[in-house]
Amino acid sequence: MTPIVLTMTWVAFLLGMAWYIAVLDGLWAAAREGRQPRAPLANPLYRCATILRQQSNLTEAPDLLNWRLAPALYAGLAGTGVALVPFSSASVLADLEVGIVWWGAVEALTVVVVFLHGWSANSQLGLIGAYRYVAIGLPVMLISMFVLIAAALPAESLAVPKIIESQHELWNVIRQPLGLPLFLLLGLSLSFRGPFNYADSADLADGTASEISGAARLVWEFARLAMLVATAAMAATVFLGGYLGPVLPGPLWLLLKTAVVLVLLVALSHLFARISPSRMLTLIWIVLMPLAFIDLVWAGLVAL
């Protein structure tokens, strides 16, 4: 792929997959309420138009710079995350030698950006959401980093293309069975969905997003979807062999795998209830973190 085609593929992938999640969400909500979905495919676009027509809101003495920047930065981080994912063996937008570390930086900066978004609005609910999110988001991020390091072990490289190459015989999801489930939790946490929605949940009247409307809200909601796309694409690449597969061309395989992972993520986010932050913290540190350690030791033993 030429750089221009590659960039266009990247944009199309982000937008298309974000739309796909929105459709899935709409279908799920309709099924749960037992009604026929109305125009399920066009509904996300209607919602975009509705949000754009809203008046934009202003709070008393916000930190305007950070408040306006945060949604854009969040979307940008999601975009750089997707840029790490190779569409085929020769086409990757950001071919970094240390791709996995860069993904870690994306995760860390996401936590920062979400906190900034909640804090800079200068409202209570936003700040509570931001605080809760940092407490949950940081340890979940640690778990995902352990899992990713484990995936980098058999490849003997931190570059994402090399990790795919190492999965020719066996996908990492089989070689390291704990990896993918733990990594999926990161997806829920980074885009705060379902059981990990501590930032923008209904009990805080949308938390960090409680004070935004109009274009800022559109960017914020898109960024949440885009971040879920980025994690799903990363999961498909690191654990499910990315573009590897028989018969069909590489990019199509990546698309299919990402779509399947997204169905899983959407199901997880709708099926599980959120528990209180303190209990979630206990669960993360006492149960999930040791599981990530076991995954790492497991990967090390297998690699030996």
Binding site: L96, V98, V101, A105, V111
Partner: peptide, 20 residues
């Protein structure tokens, strides 16, 4: 590359904790 990105990664977390 490793040191540069690791600095960004580590400091992102550290400064978040610092702010808290």
């Amino acid at each position: 590359p490793y040191l540069g990105i690791a600095t960004i990664f580590m400091m992102g977390v550290e400064m978040m904790v610092m702010a808290l």
